[in-house]
Design a protein around this nucleic acid. Structure first.
Length: 492
RNA sequence: CGGGGCGUAGCGCAGCCCGGUUAGCGCGCCUGCUUCGGGAGCAGGAGGUCGGGAGUUCAAAUCUCCCCGCCCCGACCA
């Protein structure tokens, strides 16, 4: 098995090594696209299940809209097209033709099958969805309309990275329509809170909630909100976004409703999404030089039992006990896997399950069997101790909870230690030359100034935190008046 | 798309500068025996159009040109 590069040697290489070692994903023949392997997809399935349940508790329903969008649709919202035009894949033909060139048979798009109206592969679905909403919404009784879809989208990025930025990615996109601006804003913030809850409580990933600056807003949004996490290299990662779209799409697609008084008005819209990118954040938040570390709440396999034996007789006895334990624990904590593979010794299995991030390992050998206990070892801190069989049904859930909490605490501690307030430009430049971090600084509010900061330092405003310090001050870059601090960081 | 690095067995690499038997090594894989409480040992074995194409040459992994892909640093982004 290939060695995992140490984080301290090459963070970016380490990240790729972890993905390979844990068999999460690999590159595909198509540039910028990845194959998500079963271990990786299991994490995505848990993300889907958990978020989907939460969406439905809040009244959303799922639907599915098509992958292909008529080219003309994208042009209907001016800012929207400006934001996405540069990264769209376009379908131009509907048939291939076999041709022979220099004795070799190949296929080309059949010139006779050129489409009259070309399609684009969705970079996001606002346009098709709003074209449909026009037909579905007539009265205030049709509102609010709360729909989500799980889908793949394509954005032709110049530079890609596993999970963090791939040409094709998976996500969910919620699209809602409301009768008032206030309801739209309320929904936008409600869904941002769902993402905060999910990131912090399920993924054990502390985040900063806030509003994006106008420069960083979603193309076509009135206001964009984000949750921002800090990775172990101190760079920020936008983990999810929620947009208040105002009436921009309703106007572009002519979606109106009649209220109780008979007055006709455009509806108010929101959209919100979390993508497979979050898996990159998950990997980079918790994993270590031994491989993947998964918070128990998102791990498919909660614990693995490694039976230990010397001969067939011991094997039979130990495996039987292991199966029994796994069956008892499953209703309590979820999947507990028994690794009965022969020809691999226990030490090898320990190392493998560590690479793959299984939160807890239970070692069960003849000596343990005789003593009526198992050795329980945690992935993240290697803490190991004996637990009696009849105590395992309470000890294992408690250990999983401890792990979940430890991971969150460690991530929060890293972030706290790498978060500072900076009031001088020299200090700002120095921070980001010297390891970086989260910097709460005053900003004048001018987009040109924000851009200048980015051009000079590669540092951007991640968001304007909800809980920011609103003591007035002077912009860290230009010195003009500022009404409060914003969050600066280098980002993925 | 610009700058830098790299493509040789599933993974990690050597060989290339200075062309020349049958292209090696470690890990993994297969078979057998001994093993088995932190990545087992021995023996035998399978696996390669040396990223692709064109050229130079008696002869190309090695030299030349073109193309493709990957990684890092920029410009764009969830």
């Amino acid at each position: 098995m290939a060695e995992i590069t140490k984080r301290s040697d090459d963070y970016s290489r380490w990240y790729q090594d972890v993905i390979q070692a844990a068999e999460l994903a690999e590159n595909s023949p198509v540039r910028g696209c990845m194959v998500i392997r079963p271990n990786g997809y299991a994490i995505w399935e848990n993300i889907q299940r958990t978020l989907d349940d939460r969406f439905k508790e809040l009244g959303h329903v799922n639907a599915y809209f098509p992958l292909l969008i008529p080219k003309s649709f994208l042009a209907k919202e001016a800012e929207h097209i400006e934001g996405f035009a540069k990264e769209c894949a376009i379908v131009t033909h509907h048939r291939l033709k076999q041709v022979t060139v220099d004795g070799k048979t190949t296929v080309i798009p059949d010139p006779e099958s050129k489409l009259e109206e070309e399609y684009i592969i969705r970079p996001t679905s606002e346009t098709v969805i709003w074209d449909q909403y026009r037909k579905w919404i007539q009265s205030y009784r049709d509102l609010p309309l709360l729909i989500n879809q799980w889908a793949n989208v394509m954005r032709w990025e110049m530079r890609t990275r596993m999970f963090l930025r791939t040409t094709e990615f998976l996500w969910q996109e919620g699209h809602t329509a409301h009768a008032t601006a206030a309801e739209g804003r309320e929904e936008t913030l409600r869904m941002l809170e769902v993402y905060r809850w999910f990131a912090e409580e399920v993924l054990a990933m502390p985040v900063v909630c806030g509003a994006k600056t106008p420069n960083e807003r979603f193309a076509g949004a009135v206001e964009t909100f984000s949750i921002e996490a800090m990775m172990q290299d101190r760079k920020a990662l936008q983990a999810a976004t929620s947009h208040d779209l105002g009436q921009n799409f309703a106007k572009a697609f002519d979606v109106k409703y009649q209220d109780a008084e008979g007055k006709v008005e455009y509806v108010w819209a929101t959209s919100w999404g979390m993508s497979t990118r979050i898996m990159g954040a998950l990997i980079m938040t918790h994993s270590d030089d031994n491989g993947l570390v998964l918070p128990p709440r998102i791990a498919r396999v909660k614990a693995v039992i490694v039976p230990i034996w010397k001969n067939d007789q011991e094997m039979a006895a130990v495996c039987e006990a292991a199966d029994k334990l796994a069956a008892e624990l499953k209703p309590v904590v979820g999947l507990v896997h028994v690794d009965k593979r022969d020809k691999m010794r226990p030490g090898w299995k320990y190392a493998e399950w560590e690479r793959k991030g299984v939160p807890v390992r239970l070692e069960l050998g003849p000596r343990d069997l005789a003593a009526g206990h198992v050795m329980m070892a945690a992935r993240h801190d290697r803490a190991k101790n004996a637990v009696k069989f009849d105590e395992l049904a309470t000890a294992l859930p408690a250990e999983l909870e401890r792990i979940q909490q430890d991971l969150f605490d460690a991530a929060l501690k890293r972030r706290t230690e790498a978060t500072v307030e900076i009031d001088t430009w020299d200090g700002f430049v120095k921070l980001f030359q010297d390891g970086g971090g989260f910097a709460h600084c005053h900003w004048c509010g001018d987009g040109a100034c924000e851009q200048a900061i980015q051009d000079e330092t590669r540092v951007t405003i991640r968001n304007i935190p909800f809980d920011r310090d609103e003591t007035p001050g002077k912009c860290v870059h230009c010195g003009k008046d500022s009404i409060g601090r914003v969050l600066f960081a280098q980002s993925y």
